[in-house]
Design a protein around this nucleic acid. Structure first.
Lengths: 210, 210
DNA sequence: GTCTATAGATTGATAGAC
DNA sequence: GTCTATCAATCTATAGAC
């Protein structure tokens, strides 16, 4: 990581620290020190601290959302071709799985996904807004797709359950609650793949609840 | 609220602002100004800002957790008396419903529950720890109860799903995502009671997923 | 108990030399 | 592009008068 150029080193370190400590608790001094760059480099390359955050979010979220959009549209197109309604679990899989796959693509990716997960519950609007803005089109696509999959479910109940789903995802991706700290003597934790499967199972069951 | 004594006015305002803006983004100047007390009053009555947070959390969380514990133990005792395993949904109801009931007991209560919901995903340890500490005994009680209710579910999967449940609850209690902003043209939102029912349904279905 | 005044530390941002 | 030095604003916390 320390071989990359200054701009990349700043973004990598910012991703990690924003995810771990939050945006406001991460000072530019801590950040630039850990990234081994000069304090003034952030302002030179990004303008302000907030613009750095925008750059960090957009760098990976734009491509990730493109993948999600493609996968959801593929599920909808297939259902159309089969002349059947789409299946809720397939849609949720298309929405969730790319996130978890990206998360497993490297340590930096894990930091990024944790940052995204935390953005959902970020108290400060200036942080939350960049994230919401970018996920909104995908969210609407997912919503209308699920209306076709579960036509008997009233729209406001579907929306409520979809909000629960977002909350579950955000928490799963960014939690620093250690299960084994909470209840000692647990068997080994789930692998990343098992966790992905469990997450999709959990929210699918929740969405399809009677 | 402005008729109460200084100490109470500080705690009420702190609850509201910590929940809305987060602990670190709330300055003592903003807080004391809105509470109509002198800046130095916080340090006089509570010592430090962090001790104020502890006081604010303990004030309502201790009694709330006592209620939860009683309700869970009642479900377990009844199951024991009937010589049957407890039902997962009853346990979750005992865990979740008191929180939502308290939330509906007044505007200050709503602020408090939002603060609790946000504590789960708080990046800073010093904030998260006070909350975790106090919820841990109840969480263990719920966990062992659910093991009896769902004996075929491996412990680490149950723990994972219980974490999802906590995430869903925290998000539901503190979210400032407005559903109607995300997808326009929705029918009216759910009432507090409907939301409670939906939340319990959602996590019960998730926990019992095949 | 409440107030003013201020200490002491930290923050984001920038000016200007190299 | 990178650096040092510094400004101006903010923060928590406290000392001391009333």
């Amino acid at each position: 990581m320390s071989h990359a150029d200054t701009k990349t080193r700043i973004m990598d370190t910012a991703t990690q620290l924003f995810a771990r400590d939050g945006f406001h608790l991460t000072s530019l001094r801590t950040l630039t020190e850990q990234a081994n760059v000069n304090l003034a480099a952030v302002n030179y390359h990004f303008g302000t601290k907030e613009e750095l955050l925008q750059a960090v979010i957009s760098r990976h979220l734009l491509p990730l959302n493109n993948i999600r959009q493609q996968k959801i549209e593929a599920v909808l197109a297939q259902a159309e071709a089969d002349n059947k309604p789409p299946v809720a679990k397939d849609l949720l899989h298309a929405f969730i799985k790319p996130t978890l796959d990206f998360r497993n693509s490297g340590p930096g990716a894990k930091d990024f996904i944790a940052l995204i997960g935390r953005s959902l519950s970020e108290p400060d609007e200036t942080v939350r807004i960049y994230f919401i803005q970018q996920i909104l089109p995908i969210f609407k696509l997912l919503f209308t797709g699920l209306q076709k999959a579960l036509p008997e479910l009233p729209a406001n109940i579907l929306m409520t359950r979809l909000q629960f789903t977002l909350g579950t995802m955000g928490h799963a991706m960014s939690s620093n609650l250690r299960p084994d700290q909470m209840v000692p003597g647990l068997p080994e934790m789930l692998s990343a793949d098992e966790l992905a499967k469990e997450l999709i199972n959990f929210v699918t069951s929740g969405l399809e609840a009677p």
